[in-house]
Structure formats: structure tokens, C-alpha cells
């Protein structure tokens, strides 16, 4: 076993001056494979298989979802074979007097107070479902007379929540695109940190590491905000969730979404903690152009987390 402070990256041939250490030449060339690096790549291979289990399940769950699993009017997996002709009213805005809008909805549907409160809270995408064509037209007209914004919609089904469809999909693509930018930037600062320490620029390396930690933290913060909005902060129409909240149990999509992004988030959190420790270690000046394994390995892990996010962003949010 080599002592812990042995150089992990013996001098590269571009620095002939470093050769004067008396090491035999065969050992002084850069070691392309150190045990740490082999283990890191093996670990990443196991991580690939781990995410294969999750993402592969997501893909087949999505691909195998029956064409009527999700609809703009009814909660996921509601049997729709006798509801094909039913109409709904989308409430764009409850108008100046929400109480009267609520009364009108109650009169038209006989729904309970809590259900109607959810419809109002979900505006501009509130949905009143279970109406006949006649009832829907009447309710929409009544609501529009009260100053509310309402329109009649018919049942539209899909096998999976469609992106940009507020009736079935609660995810904000705009927010997540920004978040993707942030994570990609953090990957770039990470590689710049490695490149800086390879050239012996310790201060620059620490700075880039700090930037990576901050960007990673911002990504996590945005994700926590997103989770809070989904779980608690907002009320969603019935096509997303029967309870108004988007929680892991409300649909297979929700289960997949929270599991896949949740485990990715845990990986990001682990990466941020690791990078924070590496950053603090870099402040002590222990990394140099010949000893930067910790920075390099943390970087590999961080880029891997970024790659997984690139795939998740596409598969979960955009497709």
C-alpha cells in the first residue's frame, strides 16, 4: 500500500523538471490507471445499472400505459368506458366573486365543498368534471355571466401526461430548463477546476470548486422548490391528481417522477456534500498538479450525475 500522501498523479512528461526525484523512469510516467480511478469507473458502471433499473422501469411503464390511463377530466386510471361522452368545464379564472362561482358549480354538479374549493384553487386550470353536454354548456354560461372565465371541453385521453398540458402534467418545463442549464454549468466549472489543478493553479481550482458547489446547491434548491410546489404548494386539476396534490401515490406517472428524480436528487446532494469536502480540502493546499485524485474522482461522479440529468430531463420532462 502506498502511503496516503503519495502523489496520485506522477509528473506528466511535459514537466521534465519534476523527474529529479530519483524515481525509476518506469514509475514516473503518468499512471493512467490508479486503483482509485479503476474503482471510480466501476462504481459509475454500477450506478449506470442502478439508474437502468429506475429509468428502464420508467420507460416501459410509460410505453405500456394504456391509451386511456390519463385524461383531461378524470383522475388517472379512472375507468372511462362509460364516460366517453361526458364533458367538463375548465375554469380559467373564478371572477370577482369566487363564492358565487362556487355556488354555481355546486348547483350544477352537487359536488362537496372541498371538491369545489379544489376547482377554484386550481384555476386557471380548474376542471369541473362529470357533466353532460347540456349541463356543461349551462354551467359555463352561468360562470361567464358571473365574470368568471370558463369554457366547455370534451374528454381527451392519453396514455401518459403530455408535456405542456396543464390538465394532465404538473411539471414546469421552463423552470426545469433553467435548472438543466445550471447543472450543465456546474459540470463545466467542475472540469475547469480539474484542469486548473492539473496546471497547479490552486486558488483557481478552489474557486471553480466553490462555483460548482454553489451551482449544485442552486440546482438542489430549485428541485426542492419544485417538489414543494408539487406536493404542497399548488392545487392541481383532477386529470393530475384526485386529491389536488401531486404526490407519489396519485398516479404511476407521479410514482415514476418522484422516484427517478428523487434518487437523482439524492445523488446530487451526495455530490454537493462530497464537493464541499473536496473544496474545503483544497483550501488547505493539499492538492497539487501531482496530487489531485480526489478532485478528479469527485469530478467524474459529478459529470455522471449531470449525464443522468440530461437523460432524465429529456425522458421525464420533455417526452
Amino acid at each position: 500500500m502506498a502511503p496516503a500522501d503519495a502523489p496520485t498523479h506522477p509528473a506528466a512528461p511535459t514537466h521534465p523538471g519534476d523527474r529529479a526525484h530519483g524515481h525509476p523512469a518506469a514509475d514516473a510516467s503518468p499512471a493512467p490507471a490508479t486503483p482509485g480511478k479503476v474503482a471510480m469507473w466501476l462504481f459509475l458502471a454500477t450506478e449506470i445499472m442502478f439508474f437502468t433499473g429506475l429509468i428502464g422501469s420508467y420507460i416501459v411503464c410509460r410505453g405500456g400505459s394504456p391509451p386511456t390511463a390519463y385524461s383531461n377530466l378524470y383522475p388517472p386510471t379512472t375507468p372511462l368506458d362509460r364516460l366517453g361522452d361526458s364533458k367538463g368545464v375548465v375554469l380559467g379564472a373564478p371572477g370577482a366573486d369566487p363564492a358565487r362561482a362556487a355556488e354555481a358549480i355546486a348547483a350544477a354538479t352537487g359536488k362537496g365543498e372541498a371538491a369545489i374549493a379544489r376547482v377554484l384553487a386550481a384555476a386557471p386550470h380548474g376542471v369541473v368534471n362529470g357533466l353532460t353536454e347540456e349541463g356543461a354548456t349551462k354551467l359555463a354560461e352561468g360562470l361567464n355571466r358571473l365574470g368568471a372565465k370558463a369554457e366547455v371541453v370534451s374528454l381527451k385521453t392519453s396514455s401518459w401526461p403530455r408535456p405542456y398540458d396543464p390538465a394532465t402534467n404538473p411539471l414546469s418545463i421552463d423552470l426545469t430548463t433553467v435548472n438543466t442549464f445550471i447543472l450543465i454549468c456546474s459540470s463545466a466549472t467542475m472540469v475547469l477546476a480539474v484542469s486548473a489543478i492539473q496546471r497547479g493553479r490552486k486558488a483557481k481550482c478552489s474557486l471553480y470548486l466553490l462555483a460548482t458547489v454553489v451551482l449544485g446547491g442552486v440546482f438542489l434548491g430549485v428541485q426542492v422548490f419544485e417538489y414543494h410546489e408539487l406536493l404542497e404548494g399548488r392545487i392541481y386539476p383532477p386529470g393530475i391528481s384526485p386529491t389536488g396534490h401531486f404526490r407519489p401515490g396519485v398516479s404511476l406517472f407521479a410514482s415514476c417522477f418522484f422516484t427517478v428524480t428523487g434518487f437523482h436528487g439524492l445523488h446530487v446532494a451526495a455530490g454537493v456534500v462530497t464537493l464541499l469536502l473536496v473544496f474545503l480540502a483544497s483550501l488547505t493546499g493539499r492538492f497539487s498538479s501531482r496530487n489531485f485524485a480526489a478532485v478528479e474522482y469527485a469530478g467524474l461522479y459529478w459529470h455522471f450525475v449531470d449525464v443522468v440529468w440530461i437523460l432524465l430531463f429529456t425522458i421525464v420532462y420533455l417526452v
Binding site: 511535459t14 518506469a26 510516467s29 503518468p30 493512467p32
Partner: peptide, 12 residues
């Protein structure tokens, strides 16, 4: 056979 190999052209 040490696990150390000379740099490839790509590495240089």
C-alpha cells in the same frame, strides 16, 4: 507488468 503504462499520444 506494473499497472503503469506510458502516456498515449492522446494524453500527451
Amino acid at each position: 507488468t506494473l499497472p503503469v503504462a506510458p502516456p498515449t499520444p492522446a494524453m500527451a
